[in-house]
Amino acid sequence: MKGGTGRDLGGYLAPLLVGVAVLGGWEWLVWARGIPPYVLPGPLRIGQTLISDWAPLSASLIYTLKLTVLALAVAAVAGLALALLFALSRGIERALFPYAVILQVTPIVAIAPLIIIWVNDVSISLLICAWIVAFFPILSNTTVGLNSADPNLQDLFRLYGASRWQVLWRLKLPGAMPYFLAGLRISGGLALIGAIVAEFVAGTGGAASGLAYRILESGFQLQIPRMFAALALISASGIAIFLLLSLLSHLLLRRWHESAQDGERR
């Protein structure tokens, strides 16, 4: 416990100081060099724009966030379900896993235009793109987790005549939770990136209204401060998603898993 609070404070203070220093230096550079806002706006100007243009920006933020959360949710459910299917049948795993890899390694920028053409509804096509990017880490992590149950515990379940379902539900699934949650944390950020990238590809069509579309629009209109404001919102969303998923992981695992220990070991 010694120095615990001091360490916590240092943990928050250090990145905060770096942030303040970078923003301060940026503002100073813009002011000292007299850089015009259409080339590089200072942080204060970006903040002002964030407030003055809040109505269109917040609408875009909500659109992008909805897309991201929905894509992540579908990826989590589908990834978990498919991993469970793999755990029940090695044959299915062998048959399908290569295609999951293909889905993962194909650049989303390259296939997004096709998906947008094939699917009539732009929002749904964006959702599919974000899902494709977010899906694989969850599937792959959960599969590893389900396959790494303690062999002695598996023997114990066999000894007591456990059914396949009991082994899956009581042994493999709880053991895979840390892996699943680690995958979810990676996929949270990827879902956001997938949503933004797909929107960039679709954006010139003008039908969508997410943050990427705001960035494109602001670029065309040379509204550079608004472009930066949208960028700041994307970063903030990414950080918020990561923190929320880390919190979820901590709450679910704190009682037993090493990755989520409170304080010292016994």
Partner: peptide, 9 residues
């Protein structure tokens, strides 16, 4: 078993 082999969760 030689190890306690408990379910940690």
């Amino acid at each position: 078993f030689q190890e306690p082999t408990l379910m940690p969760w």
